[in-house]
């Protein structure tokens, strides 16, 4: 049974329809990628799934439960973590405070939060070195790690990542993606949104390609990486090849 099932999701961005019926699913233990160019609706999809934005129609089912109309904080509580586009760490709060808020829902159990924070520090040693530094002064890569670590504080069943390598140097991007792999090995299912298909297809088990608010392609990541249309549109191929199906 799939952990996350999205059916016929429609949503607006401003006054414009950004999603016109998006359907996909993520099974327990998978890494699933959602690919597409800027403005194709990837971020809107994630925001609608995690309740930051209201769906106009369609259905989102998480762990067998209909969560379509739930507010974001209840969806987080249900075990769906979301690392938003642009990292969105709390810039004036310290690293430790950012992580503390990641565990907000368990705030009554201080010991558990502290223990989990130690685990996150173990995963990202760079963060452990500067717990008292304001997050806004971290480098881009460190901010991304903090954002991921913050979302891991509640041990989500599924972690949704929105462009985690955006603007990062290659080595840093690599480290972030390695962390994503590690997260899956620790038992968390991953839904990753990326614009640059190449590295993502290497990482993911399956992928969906989003174009103007619809899923236009889907399949095992290894097959999509070989698909001429994907190559043309997202991997820098020949413009004469029409990427449309």
């Amino acid at each position: 049974m799939s952990l996350l099932r999205v059916e016929g999701l429609r949503a607006r961005y401003g006054q414009v329809e950004a999603l016109s019926g998006v359907s996909f699913e993520v099974a327990e233990g998978e890494i699933v990628a959602l690919l597409g160019s800027n403005g194709a609706g990837k971020t809107t999809t994630l925001r609608t799934v995690t309740g930051l934005q209201r769906a106009r129609s369609g259905r989102v089912e998480f762990a067998g439960r209909d969560v379509t109309r739930l507010p974001a904080h209840r969806i987080v509580a249900a075990g769906l973590g979301h690392v938003p586009e642009g990292r969105r760490v709390f810039p004036a709060l310290t690293v430790a405070e950012n992580l503390l808020l990641g565990g907000y829902l368990r705030r009554r159990d201080r010991a558990a939060v502290a223990a989990r924070r130690a685990e996150v520090y173990a995963m990202f040693p760079q963060l452990a070195e500067r717990p008292g530094q304001p997050a806004g002064l971290l480098s881009g890569g460190e901010q991304q790690m903090l954002a991921i670590g913050r979302a891991l504080m509640l041990r989500p069943r599924l972690l949704a990542l929105d462009e985690p390598t955006m603007g990062l140097a290659p080595q840093t991007a690599q480290r972030v993606l390695r962390a994503v792999r590690e997260i899956r090995e620790q038992g968390t299912t991953v839904l990753i949104v990326e614009q640059n298909a190449h590295q993502t297809l290497r990482l993911a088990d399956r992928a969906y390609v989003l174009e103007t608010g619809r899923i236009v392609l889907s399949g095992p990541a290894s097959e999509l990486a070989e698909d001429d249309r994907v190559k043309a549109a997202y991997l820098g191929g020949d413009p004469a090849v029409d990427p449309a199906p």
Partner: peptide, 17 residues
């Protein structure tokens, strides 16, 4: 701390539950 976070970024605060 959550109040201060809320002042900085409402959506990110929602995502912390």
């Amino acid at each position: 701390t959550a109040m201060r976070a809320l002042a900085m970024d409402r959506d990110a605060a929602r995502l912390q539950g």
